[in-house]
């Protein structure tokens, strides 16, 4: 157990260092880029004096390392911001204030988070079930017509951009057939049934696209396991094909599927941004796209860091799960 404890410690330390380095990189890249932030924030009609005032207020004249230090300070112990007329305290973990609305970035994010979580969590359940299910089915029916159909469908899902699938679904289901109204976010607390109905199409769009990757991986991992010697032994003992595929071969696909689900967090969040924009769901993705368009840097940087945080943590968790599934990893 000592070996495993040490592995956990090393992994946790590595994760912390990575997170810190990501924050430095993201901060420097965004705040060191050319472009007059004060001018953009103030608006095109601002006089030079006003622009200067905004720059002072945003501490844009301080050297970069000092500003990063302030940022870290805010993150760990909180920070006071002067908004011109009053002083606002931003408690730790503070990601700064939006240039546009003077709201705290974290407050903005937290307000939008339930929408994005609803979207991604629901879609994840669907893509794991559909993806792994399709993979198992096509490994089981290998060599038959149904496998070829599934393979073609998987490939089609793989090649379709999420915003095209979503758009087509919306046009057909809501526009032409009028089976569902055009999605509008309803809070789970207000009406769980309406919440689910309205999220159905966004879930499907995101899930069907992501499921393709899982179907591909599950199928190939299972076929690999099926070719191994111990499976032949099971067959020789007369174990049924259903048990071999459903139990023993599926076990071989478990570790790669865990790894993919973790590696995929970043791309799934990217897909969620597209889905939210397409369906007009007021989640953090839509907020990010808006912040990007008005160059609201604190919001952009805050969002990027939060997403990167999720990605790094997901990878660390996957490593630990992987190590639990295969103890040889600990030695590496």
């Amino acid at each position: 157990m000592n070996g495993f404890g040490g592995f956990l410690l090393r992994r946790a330390a590595g994760t912390l260092i990575t997170l810190l380095a990501v924050s430095v990189l993201v901060y420097v890249v965004f705040y060191a880029t050319p472009g007059n932030v004060a001018q953009i924030t103030c608006g095109p009609r601002c006089s030079p004096e006003q622009v200067h005032q905004v720059a002072a207020q945003l501490r844009l004249d301080d050297p970069l390392y000092l500003r990063y230090f302030h940022f870290l300070q805010g993150l760990f112990v909180g920070q006071d911001y002067s908004t011109g007329t009053s002083v606002e305290h931003c408690a730790a973990p503070c990601l700064g204030l939006s240039y546009q609305s003077d709201q705290q970035v974290l407050t903005l994010l937290l307000a939008k988070l339930p929408v994005s979580l609803s979207l991604v969590a629901g879609a994840m359940v669907l893509w794991l079930v559909i993806g792994v299910g399709t993979g198992v089915l096509s490994a089981w029916r290998r060599g038959r017509l149904s496998e070829r159909v599934l393979t073609v469908l998987t490939l089609a899902g793989w090649a379709t951009p999420v915003f095209v699938l979503g758009l087509v679904l919306m046009i057909v289901v809501c526009g032409e057939l009028q089976l569902l109204p055009f999605p509008q976010y309803v809070r789970f607390g207000d009406d769980p049934e309406q919440w689910a109905w309205n999220l159905l199409l966004p879930w499907l769009s995101l899930a069907l696209i992501e499921a393709a990757a899982f179907a591909r991986l599950t199928r190939s991992a299972m076929l690999e396991t099926l070719a191994e010697d111990h499976i032949r032994t099971f067959r020789a003992y007369g174990v049924g094909e259903r048990a071999i595929v459903g139990r023993h071969a599926l076990r071989g696909a478990l570790a790669p599927v865990i790894a993919l689900n973790a590696n995929n967090v970043g791309s799934a969040i990217g897909g969620a941004v597209l889905t939210e924009t397409l369906f007009g769901l007021p989640g953090i993705g839509q907020e990010l796209v808006h912040a990007v368009k008005v160059v609201d840097l604190p919001v952009v940087v805050g969002m990027v860091l939060v997403v990167a945080f999720f990605v790094v943590i997901a990878n660390a968790v996957a490593d630990v799960l992987y190590a639990l599934a295969d103890r040889r990893v600990v030695l590496a």
Binding site: T18, L288, V292, M303, V312
Partner: peptide
């Protein structure tokens, strides 16, 4: 670190500031 950066989010954000 580079692997940890989600492409869509980073690109979306970077394209805004240039």
């Amino acid at each position: 670190i580079i692997v940890a950066l989600p492409l869509m989010i980073m690109a979306l954000a970077l394209l805004a500031v240039v």
